[in-house]
Structures are given as structure tokens and as C-alpha cells.
């Protein structure tokens, strides 16, 4: 009975990590990471540089192999398509540097790239592209623009739209505000708060995660050092100072 309940719990989680470790050739990046993410949760992943946040994202997205432990995304290994969805990929990741993520020569083609890779019908792809452009607040006039000619905020929106168009169950955002001005950051906060999807946001911007997340994970030296409600974790001055972080203005 206990095993059955445990099995149901594991399968109901959008993301489940059990003792996950990963090493690069000269250093250990992750060491025995364990946590679960339930559907609809909004999680902040914070930690100093080199803590292992991006590595954790890459493993979860299924692009980094060779890890130890168990990673289950919606009940199966990362990088696979859902068995129950209509060509839906479980995890969508928006990388820190949008310049590397947008590689097509028009905004439309870039957003359509993921859905087309899922083998969706062109009509559906059209609808999805238009729908996500509206969701992220992109004007349709930008469809034929060259992504590199857009502003940082617009590029960030196109990158997000390209991922949302694949309708993932969980969104991973790596430093989403790194190239945004205050207005762009404010718009991003509003946009993220309007998305109902499960989110894990990795950022050094404590104010951004305080405004968008309800739970926080602190990673340092490849280890998970804190996990709890965002106010308890980010509001803990000693914990924040010990791990090279700052208490966000909202919790001071």
C-alpha cells in the first residue's frame, strides 16, 4: 500500500529528482539533489555562480546525459515526448542568452520551429504561433522581422513564445531578466504571473523571483541547501548571506 501511494505521488509530480549527481571532467556540479515539483507550482531556483543551476536545467530538459540518480519528468525520462499528449514535449526551457536560442531568420519561423518538429499540422502550427504571440504580447507585425534586430525584451518574448508554442507541462527559465531594463523586467514579471504553467525560474534577481514564485530552492556548490516557502527561504538573512545571496527588498 505504501509503495502504491509512493508510486502515485511520484507519477503525479511534474518533476521528480532522486539523488541526482553530475560531474564535469574537472569538478562535481551536482551532488545528491532531491526534490519534487507539483503541477502549477512556481519555484525559484537561486544560488551563487557555479552552484549548478544551469546544469540542473539542462539535465531536466534532457540535453545533458551521464548523470547519476533518477530524474522523472511527468513520470518518464527527460527529453522524451509525453505519451499522453498530442506531440507535447514536457519541458520547455528558455535560455539565459536569447541570442543563442533564436536561430531562424524570421520571428514566425523561429516560433514555429518547435511545433513543426513535433510533427504538428501546418494549420495548427499557424494557430499556435499566433496564439502564443498574443500571449507573450508580441505584435503580429514582428512576424517577418529578423530576431536579432529586436530589442532585448522582444527577443526574450520571442524565445518564450517559441517554447510556449510547444505547450510544455513545465517551463524552465534561466536568468530571464538578464538583459532587460526596469520596464522590460516589470513587463516580464507581469507576463510570468499571467502564465498558469508550472515554472522553475533560476535567477540572481531576488526581486523578480520574490514577485513571481511561491517556493524557493537554494543551490550552492552543487547541493540543495534550502527548500521551502519563498518568504521563509529568501527572507532568512543568515541563509542568504551564507550562500552569497541577498534578501529581496519585498522581504526586508
Amino acid at each position: 500500500m505504501f509503495l502504491f501511494v509512493l508510486g502515485v505521488l511520484v507519477l503525479s509530480a511534474v518533476l521528480s529528482l532522486q539523488s541526482v549527481s553530475f560531474s564535469y571532467p574537472k569538478r562535481k556540479a551536482l551532488n545528491g539533489i532531491c526534490f519534487r515539483v507539483e503541477a502549477g507550482e512556481k519555484i525559484a531556483l537561486v544560488g551563487p555562480n557555479g552552484a549548478g543551476k544551469t546544469t540542473l536545467f539542462l539535465i531536466t530538459a534532457g540535453v545533458l546525459d551521464g548523470y547519476e540518480g533518477e530524474v522523472l519528468v511527468a513520470g518518464h525520462e527527460p527529453g522524451q515526448r509525453s505519451q499522453d499528449g498530442d506531440g507535447i514535449r514536457d519541458v520547455g526551457i528558455v535560455f539565459q542568452n536569447t541570442e543563442d536560442q533564436l536561430f531562424h531568420t524570421t520571428v514566425f519561423d523561429d516560433i514555429a520551429f518547435g511545433p513543426l518538429n513535433l510533427g504538428l499540422d501546418k494549420e495548427i502550427v499557424h494557430q499556435r504561433v499566433h496564439s502564443v504571440m498574443e500571449t507573450v504580447g508580441l505584435n503580429h507585425d514582428l512576424e517577418t522581422e529578423f530576431p536579432l534586430h529586436l530589442s532585448g525584451g522582444q527577443r526574450r518574448r520571442v524565445a518564450l513564445a517559441g517554447v510556449l508554442a510547444m505547450e510544455p507541462k513545465m517551463l524552465l527559465l534561466d536568468e530571464p531578466s538578464s538583459d532587460l531594463d526596469p520596464r522590460g523586467r516589470r513587463e516580464l514579471v507581469n507576463l510570468l504571473n499571467s502564465l498558469e504553467i508550472t515554472k522553475v525560474i533560476s535567477s540572481h534577481n531576488m526581486d523578480l523571483v520574490a514577485e513571481t514564485c511561491s517556493r524557493a530552492l537554494v543551490l550552492d556548490g552543487g547541493e540543495l541547501v534550502a527548500d521551502g516557502p519563498i518568504q521563509d527561504v529568501l527572507g532568512n538573512r543568515d541563509l542568504m548571506m551564507k550562500h552569497g545571496l541577498e534578501v529581496p527588498a519585498a522581504f526586508q
Binding site: L58, A61, G62, V63, R89, V91, G92, I93, F95, D100, Q101, F103, F108, D109, A112, F113, G114, L116, N117, L118, K122, V125, H126, G162, V163, M166
Partner: peptide, 17 residues
């Protein structure tokens, strides 16, 4: 770029509308 493309389902072809 390769990672970003793989995350969006790239398997060797660039599909087009």
C-alpha cells in the same frame, strides 16, 4: 545553440511552413 535546438525537438531537419 545545439542545446537550444535539441530542446525544441531538432532531429536533423529544419522544418518549414
Amino acid at each position: 545553440v545545439t542545446r537550444a535546438m535539441r530542446c525544441r525537438g531538432y532531429h536533423g531537419t529544419l522544418p518549414t511552413m
